[in-house]
Simulated assay, not measured.
Amino acid sequence: MAAEPNETAQVNEIQKEYTRIDKDWLSLHYKISIGMVLFALAVECIMGLILVNTDMLNTTVPKFVFKFILVPSGVNGLCAVIDHMVVKSEKISQTAKIYTVSIINTVICFSLFTAHSAFTVTYYVFVTAIILTTVYASYLVTLSTSVSGLALLVISELFITWDVDKPTIFQSTLRLGNFLIALFIMFSVSMICMVVIHYEKRKNRASIRIEEERITLTKRLKMDELTGIYNRKALHDAMRDLEDCNPQDNYIFGITDIDKFKNINDSWGHQTGDKCLIAFAQLLKSNCIKANVYRYGGDEFCIIFHHTDINEAYETAVLIQDQLKKVEFKEYPELQMTASFGLAQYGSGMNAARLFMSADQALYQAKITRDAIRIHEKEI
């Protein structure tokens, strides 16, 4: 049986699962970008064939192929290569990959829009790039994509004249209207995405908070309120798990209690007795580094030593006995505690009940002389 996991382990697993989901979406995001490049190339080739065979083409075929097929496809192909190198790199963090794929997607949109802006529908390719970032639930990723998309749209529309037959926004009221509407839609979509991310983050935080509360409740059910160590229920669970372990892993089971504890309660009161239990529990916990400590009941405590041989467990018990004798109470300077230990080694074919009985028998032998340590079937 391994040591109890840290109470945040399951919460960390949730965070890791979110990271895995982001990684899976990043892969799909990258594939969508590649798909856009290939789809755009196919559409450009088909449209080129149609235009070449009609009287709609008002330029030479080589010039048309160069400007509207080779150049945009070349830019998009370069973006696809960069995307591939970044996504497959093991030296680049996942966060950097997310930003890179998101921004490069807007560059692909910029290339398509610039080459084919005569078609009004191309205004809205940037919207796709923004929406694809919402799955990451990151304000900065979506904001960066939105800002870069808006900037590239403005640059393309105001400063680049790729298609000389296309009227500029200063020459056409319709073109200006479409441009302003596109800006408004992109801005609106960006704001909507931010709102979606806000609620997605709230949902994620709620799931983590619920898991933390569940872990806290589970832990409380397994903790002894007085001493702050594991209780009897936790011991039963640990003993059940112990039966599934490999006997070769060297597990030692120990039972200990405070000698003449009833006399302490009778002489100094139960409140002082509680202080003794707390002090003893803290000594057990601080010294049993490779073990879990449980309060079985009253002044009786159990210890499960993990990957420890019998000699090391014995030495730990001796150390605890020595430190316990030095514990002082200012109100009762004459009060001195001692403890007895019974130890048993987990072996092949031994179940939890037999292991417990072996340690209990060893403790019974130790209680005969008190302040002693006994090992089942062997005395040291």
Results as ranks from 00 to 15, higher is better:
Glu4Ile: 13
Asn6Phe: 14
Thr8Met: 09
Gln10Trp: 06
Val11Phe: 14
Glu17Tyr: 11
Lys23Arg: 11
Leu26Arg: 08
Ile32Pro: 14
Ser33Glu: 12
Gly35Cys: 12
Gly35Pro: 06
Val37Ser: 11
Phe39Lys: 03
Ala40His: 00
Leu41Pro: 14
Ile50Pro: 06
Thr54Lys: 08
Asp55Lys: 12
Leu57His: 13
Thr60Arg: 12
Pro62Phe: 01
Lys63Phe: 12
Lys63Arg: 15
Val71Asp: 06
Pro72Thr: 00
Pro72Phe: 03
Pro72Tyr: 06
Ser73Glu: 08
Val75His: 12
Gly77Glu: 01
Leu78Gly: 06
Cys79Asp: 09
Val86Glu: 08
Lys88Leu: 10
Ile92Lys: 06
Lys97Asn: 00
Ser102Asp: 00
Ile108Val: 14
Phe110Met: 10
Ser111Phe: 02
Leu112Phe: 15
Thr114Asn: 05
Ala115Val: 01
Ala118Ile: 15
Ala118Trp: 11
Val121Thr: 02
Thr122Val: 03
Val125Ile: 15
Ala129Thr: 12
Tyr136Glu: 02
Ala137Val: 12
Thr142Ala: 06
Leu150Arg: 04
Thr161Asp: 11
Asp163Thr: 15
Thr168Pro: 07
Leu176Ser: 13
Leu176Asp: 08
Gly177Cys: 05
Gly177Val: 10
Ala182Leu: 08
Leu183Trp: 07
Met191Asn: 13
Met194Pro: 10
Ile197Trp: 04
Lys203Ala: 09
Glu211Pro: 09
Glu211Ile: 13
Glu213Gly: 04
Ile215Thr: 13
Thr216Leu: 07
Thr218Ala: 09
Lys219Pro: 09
Arg220Asn: 15
Lys222Thr: 10
Gly228Lys: 03
Leu235Tyr: 08
Asp237Trp: 03
Asp237Leu: 10
Asp237Lys: 11
Leu242Asp: 01
Asp244Gly: 12
Cys245Ala: 15
Asn246His: 05
Gln248Lys: 13
Phe253Met: 04
Ile258Lys: 03
Ile258Met: 02
Ile258Val: 14
Asn265Phe: 01
Trp268Asp: 01
Gly269Thr: 02
Thr272His: 02
Asp274Leu: 02
Cys276Ile: 02
Ala281Cys: 01
Gln282Phe: 05
Ala291Asp: 04
Asn292Asp: 14
Tyr294Trp: 01
Tyr294Ser: 01
Cys302Glu: 08
Phe305Ala: 08
His307Gln: 11
Glu315Trp: 10
Tyr332Pro: 12
Thr338Pro: 08
Leu343Gln: 01
Ser348Thr: 13
Asn351Pro: 09
Arg354His: 05
Leu355Ile: 08
Leu355Gly: 00
Met357Tyr: 12
Gln361Leu: 15
Gln361Asp: 13
Tyr364Phe: 08
Lys367Cys: 03
Thr369Gln: 14
Ala372Trp: 02
Ala372Val: 06
Glu377Lys: 11
Glu379Gln: 08
